[in-house]
């Protein structure tokens, strides 16, 4: 049976420390470039601070980790790519990005409803000597291509190799987890196979307070968020800016 990897993120536990963001960059050889800013930088995982729109001291904030939502149906980025550089792996449900095929047209960035894709404006560079700390399982990407979260595909392949070496057909639960899940000190992010009813993440999506972002688009995102706070769950509908109900990110 094919797997359908997904994530469950408990917003009520996320402290917004940013460990997931930097762990993702370490794992996937994403550089920090001096000229980068919030529009030109690359953050496969980005944590946004949202609030309830009230004035101090009634204001309340929450932290929302945002990454590729791994849309499973009518995947917008895969639909618009002229180069077939984006595909949905039927064996895992992971939306992959192949930089070798990417032309840098950025149609996929325009199509992504979550703004979770990033363009390499520059060739990757690291301070002298720091290239020694690059992850050997992930190739750095050149300038002119788009990249995004792929649930740490390097880790997936390592887990597959380990399973094969142990003579097992399938990866055992817990053998493959992305870097952000491992790094989260608060244990706010859980990862697993949504098709496996015994997995934590499959159970979490049925919990009260569980929701997906922009579910109304019908793209079957595989990232489930959870919060017991009503105003936090409103972010699923992306309210229009201007009103008091606006959620500032």
């Amino acid at each position: 049976m094919n797997k359908r990897y997904g994530m469950s993120i408990d917003i009520d536990k996320c402290t917004g420390c940013g460990a997931c963001m930097v762990a993702c960059a370490v794992e996937n050889n994403v550089p920090a470039l001096p000229g980068a800013n919030d529009r030109r930088g690359i953050t496969w995982m980005r944590v946004y601070r949202v609030d309830n729109g009230e004035e101090y001291p009634d204001r309340r904030s929450a932290f929302v980790p945002m990454l590729c939502q791994q849309c499973g149906v009518e995947t917008p980025c895969a639909h618009v790519c002229p180069q077939q550089a984006v595909d949905v792996d039927p064996a895992t449900g992971i939306v992959g990005q192949m930089p070798e095929r990417c032309l840098g047209c950025r149609y996929c960035m325009a199509a992504c409803p979550y703004h979770a894709r990033y363009f390499n404006w520059w060739d990757p560079q690291w301070p002298a000597g720091m290239e020694k700390t690059l992850n050997p399982d992930v190739a750095p990407r050149m300038r002119g291509v788009v990249e995004k979260c792929n649930f740490c595909h390097g880790r997936y392949h390592r887990a597959k190799e380990r399973a094969a070496a142990a003579g097992e057909k399938d990866i055992r639960p817990g053998e493959y987890i992305p870097a952000c899940v491992e790094a989260c000190p608060a244990g706010a992010i859980r990862f697993g196979d949504l098709n496996d009813p015994s997995s934590e993440v499959a159970a979490a999506r049925h919990e009260a307070g569980s929701f997906r972002l922009l579910e109304k688009l019908g793209t079957d995102p595989k990232i489930y968020y959870h919060s017991t706070r009503d105003w936090v769950r409103q972010i699923a509908f992306a309210p229009k800016p201007g009103g008091k109900e606006n959620l500032h990110g």
Partner: peptide, 22 residues
């Protein structure tokens, strides 16, 4: 090439500590 906590996650400073020599 990467650091992780043994008994739980690390803070962002700890996750990137191996970059400091460079």
């Amino acid at each position: 090439v990467s650091l992780a906590g043994v008994e739980g996650g690390l803070c962002p400073f700890g996750v990137t500590g191996h970059h400091l020599p460079y």
